[in-house]
Design a protein around this nucleic acid. Structure first.
Lengths: 218, 218
DNA sequence: CGTGTAGTTGATGCTCCTCAATTTTTGTGG
DNA sequence: CCACAAAAATTGAGGAGCATCAACTACACG
C-alpha cells in the first residue's frame, strides 16, 4: 500500500525490526521519519509525570504513524509484540515530495483522515462509558481489526487494555472474568491462557456495548 | 486561510449562517460538502440510542470539518452560538481538484493531521482523569483557543462541557463552583453570570490538570 | 526448577452518578 | 422596561461503580 506510493516517489525506505516493549521513538524526539507497520503490533502512548500511562492507539499492519505538524513527536511509540516490523521513510523528503506529488499528498491526507477517525472512535469508547461497555466495545474493535476465523489473538496485556480505556487493570481483569462467566466470550486452548478470545454471539456483545436502557414508557 | 486555497483552485464556495442549536448535518447524511468555520462555535457530536450525547470536538473559526473517507457523515454537527458562519465547498469537487493540485492536497493533509492531534488531545483529557483534572484541562484548552486579553467567554453550556468530558452536568457545575471557591477561576461582570471566566494563576490550574502526586520518596 | 511477570480475586472506601428540589438566567410578549 | 414562562445552573442527600490496597495463583523464561 504505502510502499507503492513511496517507490513511485523514488523515496528511500528502511525496514526496521523491534522486540517486545522496544521503543521506536520517544515523545519530544525530533520527528525525522514517518513509519508504516508491516508486521506485529505497537502502541502510541503518553506517560504522565506521576507515572500513569495513556495509550492513545494500537497500531496494526497497514497503519501509518509518525507524521507530525511540528518538529517533534507528540507521543512515544512502542512495540507490543516480539517480531514487530516497521517501514520508515525520511519525513522531510516525504513531505517535500508530497508538495509536488498530488498522488502522494492525497495518500497522506487519507492516512491522516483515517487516523482522525480512529481517534474519534477511541473518544467515543471513553466518553461516559461504564467499564462493561468499554470492554465490549474494545473486543468488538479487536474483532473487526485482527480476528482470524472468529478467533482474536490479543497482542496486548491487561495492562495495555487498562491504559487504553483509562481503567485499572484489576477492573479490566474482573470484566473479562465476568464476560467469561456469562459466556459472552470464550478462551481458546488452555483455559488459563486468556489471550485467545472467541465471541460466540456477537449480538450479545453489541448489546453490552450500547445498552438500550429500557425505554418502554418513554 | 482555506478560502485562499479554494479560490486558487477555482472552487465555488457558499457562506452559510446558523442559529443556536441549528444542525449543519446529521450523522448518516451523505457527505456532500466540506466546511470551514469563519465565525462562532459549533460542535461535532454523536447521539447514542439511549439518548446520551457524546461531543467529540468543539469547532472554532479556522477549523475544517466534514471531510469523510466514506460516503456519509460519521457525526452530527451543530451550532452553539447565535451567529455562526461557515464556508462550504463541494466535497467531490474539492477531493477531485486535490488529486491534481498538490498545494491543495497538502492543505487538506495538514487539516486532517491537525484534527487528529486535536482528537488525541481529547482522548488524553479523558483517559483515567478525575473530573478536577478534566475541568482544569478543559479550561486550559479554552484559554489557549479562545481567550482574549485573559478572558474566556465560554460559548458552550454546562451540558456541552459535560458531554465533552463524559460527565454529568451536575458534576461539572460542582467543579466550577469548587474552582471558584478556591479562587482558581473568577467570573467576570455580574458574578452570577458564569460563562465569562478569568484564570488569575495559570500555574495553579496546570498543577490541578496534571497533579504530581508527591513522589518525594520515590 | 526457580524467579520475575502477568493475571486473578477479595475487602474496603472514595468519587462521581442519580434523583430531587431550588435558584438563577434567558427569552418572549405586553 | 417589566412580567412571566421556560431553560439553565446550582445545591443536597444517598448510593453504585470503580479505584485502591493486598494477597495469591499461574505462567514464561533462563
Amino acid at each position: 500500500m504505502i510502499d507503492q506510493h513511496l517507490r513511485a516517489a523514488k523515496l528511500a525506505t528502511v525496514l526496521l525490526g523491534y522486540r517486545r516493549d522496544e521503543v521506536v521513538y520517544e515523545r519530544g524526539a525530533p520527528a525525522q521519519f514517518i513509519y508504516a507497520v508491516t508486521e506485529g503490533t505497537l502502541c502510541r502512548l503518553r506517560v504522565l509525570e506521576d507515572g500513569r500511562r495513556l495509550i492513545l492507539q494500537f497500531l496494526f499492519p497497514g497503519d501509518v504513524f509518525g507524521y507530525e505538524l511540528g518538529r517533534n513527536h507528540r507521543h512515544t511509540v512502542q512495540a507490543l509484540t516480539k517480531d514487530t516490523r516497521v517501514l520508515s521513510v525520511g519525513r522531510e523528503a516525504l513531505l517535500e515530495a508530497s508538495k509536488s506529488d498530488a498522488q502522494l499528498s492525497h495518500f497522506l491526507f487519507t492516512a491522516a483522515a483515517r487516523a482522525e477517525a480512529v481517534a474519534s472512535e477511541h473518544s467515543a469508547m471513553l466518553l461516559g462509558r461504564s467499564i462493561t461497555e468499554q470492554i465490549a466495545l474494545f473486543l468488538l474493535e479487536m474483532d473487526a481489526r485482527i480476528s482470524r476465523g472468529g478467533e482474536i489473538a490479543l497482542p496486548m496485556r491487561r495492562r495495555h487494555i487498562a491504559d487504553y480505556l483509562g481503567r485499572r487493570l484489576e477492573s479490566v481483569s474482573r470484566t473479562f472474568t465476568a464476560f467469561h462467566k456469562a459466556k459472552v466470550i470464550e478462551f481458546l486452548g488452555n483455559p488459563k491462557i486468556r489471550r485467545q478470545v472467541v465471541i460466540p454471539d456477537k449480538r450479545r456483545l453489541e448489546r453490552l456495548a450500547a445498552p438500550v436502557v429500557g425505554r418502554p414508557t418513554e
